[in-house]
């Protein structure tokens, strides 16, 4: 990337004028927010690990009966793909491909995000069936405090995409809309990053032979 980077994530670039310079403080602030959010996740992970033992499971269902590795793998790939498509949306924004192109990539990302959530809901339903419910043990409480927290974030991200689609349609690509798209991109990529920790620690860790 050429010079003139003012903030984390892909920059709009100097050719965007005021939208580019105005993004500096806003995106930096959002980045700080994300770091605060990362700390929240970190602590929930730590709590999960303190409960991931026989004492925390209190004789209830274990992870082996409740998790479905195939489905988690599918979710992981879908989310990763959505990160890529979101990247393309940001590129379309940076290179001024127009609203159409941006909206198309956003829609694809939204679709993938919803697909992820659908699969995750199916997994949750299965867990409830086999008795892996938060009311059962400290371990399942910790699980249900962690993984759905990521899911809720992702759902918020989906809602945000919808709002941005509406704003692009009504307001056009004004500077405020552009910086919001940049922030949404950071949010989306960060959720994928946290998912890496989720599948590594919770799912792979729980299913380790």
């Amino acid at each position: 990337m050429s010079g003139g980077n003012l903030h984390p994530g892909l920059n709009l670039g100097d050719h965007h004028g005021k939208a580019h310079s105005g993004a500096e403080a806003v995106v930096f602030g959002f980045w700080i927010f994300l770091m605060s959010d990362v700390v929240i996740f970190g602590l929930v992970f730590a709590s999960y690990l303190t409960a991931a033992n026989p004492m925390g499971m209190a004789g209830g269902t274990g992870p082996a009966e409740a998790f479905d590795l195939g489905s988690v793998f599918a979710q992981t790939v879908i989310l990763l793909a959505s990160s890529l498509t979101f990247g393309f949306a940001t590129l379309a924004l940076r290179h001024e491909d127009g609203r159409r192109a941006i909206a198309r990539w956003l829609a694809v990302s939204l679709f993938l995000g919803l697909g992820f959530l659908t699969l995750e809901m199916r997994d949750f339903a299965h867990m409830i069936e086999v008795g892996a419910v938060p009311q059962r043990s400290g371990y399942w409480s910790a699980f249900w405090g962690l993984v759905p927290l990521h899911g809720l974030h992702l759902a918020a991200g989906c809602l945000w995409i919808v709002v941005m689609l509406a704003q692009m349609a009504t307001l056009g690509l004004v500077p405020a809309v552009k910086t919001r798209l940049l922030r949404l991109g950071l949010f989306w990529h960060c959720l994928d990053l946290i998912w890496v920790a989720v599948f590594s620690i919770v799912y792979l860790g729980g299913l380790m032979p």
């Binding site: 709590s47 303190t50 409960a51 004492m55 925390g56 499971m57 209190a58 209830g60 938060p134 009311q135 059962r136 043990s137 400290g138 371990y139 399942w140 409480s141 910790a142 249900w144 405090g145």
Partner: peptide, 16 residues
Amino acid sequence: LDFHFFTNDLGGNMMN
């Protein structure tokens, strides 16, 4: 919601 993060029973851990 009747979770067990910090309860006395069922694997809760109030020390956390």
